[in-house]
């Protein structure tokens, strides 16, 4: 029978752990809501830039931006979004698994694979493997900004422009609901020209361009792609918080169970000690 004192200190330590996990759970819950809000805020930009790009395409059918030209996929680039911190369940592991599957598939098809890794956990994982990492950004925090992504995305876009990559995909966790996050692979480049025609507008009209259509399209496409990566990043933060919330809830529950069990053992030990003492007193009295 372990001493009551040891059990008591064990209970105290589990209780303080439970306090921390509970606090982390609540912090994650509130951060998740804010991340979801940012996810929603990012949508109008993507929709608006997509609309302008579609329009430009329809108005200039003879001009094809390099980002829109389909090439045989001999070199594939993947932008992998991961979290900076752990304690968020299998979120990162799932994203990495999907990335590796994609990489192996591409290699079987005879294509090379290179990566751009966002987030600490991804960098820690992929640096041990032998895929070339072209660029990386870490420490983006819970509120990523587009400005932090520009560099890493530019490296990949430049590689595509120079013909070192023939396809660019984005791998990140998709927020289905609080309990479910799924890895998603999204093709960034080449951009499929959207064939749908906007209703309610005359078919043959064009903008006045200042300076030129090509230049504007280039600037727009880069911003559009950055906003896609940003959206993936923000969604990943929402997933991270949801996963952490669930993981911390499980941890708090487990700690609660452990405390109940320990309490039981403690009570038994205490009772045994009292009984023993009583028996000793009675025995002593009888001896006298």
């Amino acid at each position: 029978m372990p001493g009551t004192k040891e059990i008591r200190s064990k209970i105290a330590s589990v209780k303080s752990t439970q306090k921390i996990t509970k606090a982390m759970e609540m912090v994650a819950a509130s951060k998740m809501r804010r991340a979801q809000e940012r996810m929603r805020m990012a949508r109008p930009f993507a929709a608006a830039s997509r609309r302008v790009i579609t329009h430009l395409n329809q108005a200039n059918p003879d001009y094809r931006h390099p980002f829109m030209v389909e090439r045989p996929a001999k070199a594939i680039g993947a932008i992998v979004v991961s979290t900076d911190r752990g304690l968020c369940g299998a979120l990162n592991a799932n994203t990495f698994k999907t990335t590796l599957q994609l990489a192996r598939q591409s290699q079987r098809a005879g294509a090379s694979v290179s990566l751009c890794v966002l987030g600490n956990k991804g960098l820690g994982f992929f640096r041990r493997l032998d895929y070339p990492i072209l660029a990386s950004t870490t420490g983006l925090g819970d509120r990523p900004h587009v400005a932090d992504l520009i560099g890493a995305v530019k490296v990949m876009l430049d590689a595509y422009r120079d013909g070192r990559l023939d396809r660019l995909v984005l791998v990140h966790a998709q927020f289905v609901n609080t309990m479910t996050q799924r890895p998603r692979t999204l093709q960034l480049l080449p951009i499929e020209a959207n064939p749908e025609v906007e209703a309610g507008l005359p078919e043959h009209w064009d903008y006045i361009y200042e300076p030129s259509a090509a230049e504007i399209l280039d600037a727009l496409l880069i911003r559009y792609l950055e906003s896609q990566v940003y959206q993936g990043m923000v969604e990943n933060v929402a997933c991270e918080m949801a996963a952490r919330m669930v993981a911390m809830k499980a941890a708090s529950d487990n700690a609660g169970e452990l405390i109940t069990e320990l309490q039981l053992v403690y009570n038994k030990a205490r009772q045994a000690a009292i009984t023993k003492e009583l028996a000793e007193i009675v025995g002593g009295a009888a001896a006298v």
């Binding site: 930009f45 608006a48 830039s49 609309r51 302008v52 751009c116 890794v117 960098l123 640096r127 990492i133 072209l134 660029a135 990386s136 950004t137 870490t138 900004h145 587009v146 400005a147 520009i150 560099g151 890493a152 530019k154 490296v155 430049d158 727009l220 911003r223």
Partner: peptide, 28 residues
């Protein structure tokens, strides 16, 4: 529609950011 940038953009700035991202990958 105004599609606004949140950060100041210039060719050199973008280039510097790209270099930094590459460097981080190499360091890692």
């Amino acid at each position: 529609t105004v599609l606004a940038d949140t950060a100041a953009r210039a060719h050199d700035l973008d280039e510097a950011a790209a270099l930094a991202a590459q460097q981080r990958a190499q360091e890692a």
